[in-house]
């Protein structure tokens, strides 16, 4: 079975993140990396491959600027076999609909049995790309898997909801998305890091995919970010000092005002 893992290159969530004047994410002023949530997707693909007969091949696919090759490299270091990087200036600013179009067209060109995604990106956090991909590819979607089992072409996942836990099955081809509960992502070993250097990465443009530039990018996006504002810094908590025995009353009063009691 051949697997395509879709990954996204995102700004490091632990760094100071900003937006550009056109309300797109500033990707220049901050270090980027493979979205942590996509590491889980790579991990699950690797585990499925390890349980297989050894003929499986994992292709990592990303759509993003030049630097996004770092995300591919990280996945290759973890153990994926090859990479495809769709890079084209016209793609900049694409929303999830446009991104899913580019991803879907790329996936069609890669020999595969099924597709694995993370549950969301750590920057956009829309969670919709896997569903859109399934729709565009005309295959079932098995999303938000927290536990994944596969036998032959049959997959079963556990999806933990607020009110119920569902077990969902499908037969390949399908689009799978996995959550951060699916299993810790591995660290690349030193050998993995060195081996990644020699793994093939192809670079494709929109023209290679037969996608017209007018269908993607900021101007073609269905949604528009109108405004952005940084979250206000956390204010210091209220400190109750007990000097005359009134502390407990003040504490209870505070909790009551916040409707905790």
């Amino acid at each position: 079975m051949n697997i395509v893992v879709c990954v996204k290159y995102v700004p490091d969530a632990t760094a100071d993140r900003h937006f550009e004047a056109d309300n797109t994410v500033d990707r220049v002023g901050v270090d980027g990396l493979l979205s942590e949530l996509d590491e889980y997707a790579v991990e699950q693909a690797l585990q499925l491959k390890e349980k297989g007969d050894g003929t499986d091949e994992i292709t990592v696919l990303t759509v993003g600027p030049e630097q996004a090759s770092d995300a591919i490299r990280k996945a290759l270091q973890m153990g994926a076999d090859k990479g495809v990087h769709v890079v084209d200036d016209a793609i900049a600013g694409s929303d999830s609909l446009a991104t899913s179009l580019v991803l879907a067209e790329a996936i069609k060109k890669i020999d595969h049995d099924f597709v694995v995604c993370g549950m969301a990106s750590t920057d956009g956090a829309m969670s919709v790309v896997p569903a859109m991909l399934a729709e565009r590819l005309g295959v079932p979607q098995v999303t938000f898997g927290s536990q994944i089992e596969m036998q032959g072409k049959e997959i079963r996942i556990r999806r933990d909801g607020d009110a119920a836990t569902e077990v969902i099955g499908a037969t390949a081809p399908f689009v799978l998305s996995v959550t951060d509960q699916s299993g810790e992502a591995r660290y690349p070993s030193f050998k993995g890091i060195m081996a990644a250097k020699k793994k093939p990465v192809e670079t494709w443009s929109l023209a290679d995919l037969g996608v017209e530039a007018e269908k993607v990018g900021l101007s073609a996006s269905w949604t528009q970010v109108e405004d952005t504002a940084a979250r206000p810094p956390r204010s210091q908590g209220e400190i109750v000092t007990d000097e005359d025995g009134s502390g407990a009353t003040a504490l209870a009063g505070f909790l009551a005002s916040k409707k905790f009691i």
């Binding site: 660290y187 690349p188 070993s189 030193f190 050998k191 993995g192 060195m194």
Partner: peptide, 22 residues
Amino acid sequence: KHGYLGVALPEEYGGGGGGIGD
């Protein structure tokens, strides 16, 4: 376990085949 201690040792003896710089 991740091969980080053995980076500089030869690959045929379980190392990573890198150097002291690694």
